[in-house]
Design a protein around this nucleic acid. Sequence first.
DNA 1: ATAAATATAGGAATGATTATCAATTTTATT
DNA 2: AATAAAATTGATAATCATTCCTATATTTAT
Lengths: 150, 150
Amino acid sequence: MPNYSRQRESIRNFLAGRRDHPTAETIYQNIRQEYPSISLGTVYRNLTLLSELGEIQKISAGSGPERFDPNTAPHYHFICTHCGGVSDLKMGSLDHINILAGQDFDGEIAGHSAYFYGTCAGCRSAGRTMTEDRAADRTDTGQRGPKSIP
Amino acid sequence: MPNYSRQRESIRNFLAGRRDHPTAETIYQNIRQEYPSISLGTVYRNLTLLSELGEIQKISAGSGPERFDPNTAPHYHFICTHCGGVSDLKMGSLDHINILAGQDFDGEIAGHSAYFYGTCAGCRSAGRTMTEDRAADRTDTGQRGPKSIP
DNA sequence: ATAAATATAGGAATGATTATCAATTTTATT
DNA sequence: AATAAAATTGATAATCATTCCTATATTTAT
């Protein structure tokens, strides 16, 4: 078991209170308020450790930086192609698609990775239908623009 | 329309004859046999152009470099967690999962991205059940080891 | 054959992440 | 509480994948 460290504790607590799946950079900028001398490397090191310990989840959706989720229960994510925001989807398991995938396949399907994309409620009500996003305005989107998201 | 270029033509032809979804680096190493002075930047530039033209498909699966597929028809991929190889799956569309995702969601689901992982036929018959892969031996896996694939 | 437009090679630059290592912090031991 | 051993940190260098830059070369239109 790893030793205690206040930096790691702070990262743990910060993440626990967020539902927006922040990137390492965002976590770094926030933890820096409390520990001005923390380094980005420490943030990465601890995020990797915490996800290896199964306390958090590392999620990668297409291009762009990895994101971190305090919810370790299996669930699916939605990525808005306009603002870049990532949110949780309330939907049941899709494990039946593993069967479909294995039907005409020689190897063994152990699982799948999937995410959904489209326009989030906020962007739709703001009339953002084409890619005239303003991701940079948001607290954290983790990407500068809607790159090749699919 | 872009001008003709032999480098681009060579990339096009190389890709057309492969079913292993090579990375830009692998494509570069191969085209180099015919055009020793081609640069990696040219390979990237043309791969991006060809996928914008809809002649090829750029596929990203978790971490690791992007891969390129001459098959532009929508289909799903399988990634072996042992050797890192990527193969096509013969399975129908999963578009019904978009409906499931949209059921309890306020935004608009436009589509999804999914891939499957597990043990490929080759690795299974070679008895590779745990992660004692030897990806580096393969012609191209595009990654050094089975990183956080899910 | 020539000019204009486009593409290339080569290398520098960028962004995300990992590695290195001396100094500091934490834990166990006296 | 003092100390030694083990683990973690901060700072920075290194790496990897990819994009950007620009002078030169190739392609296309005239």
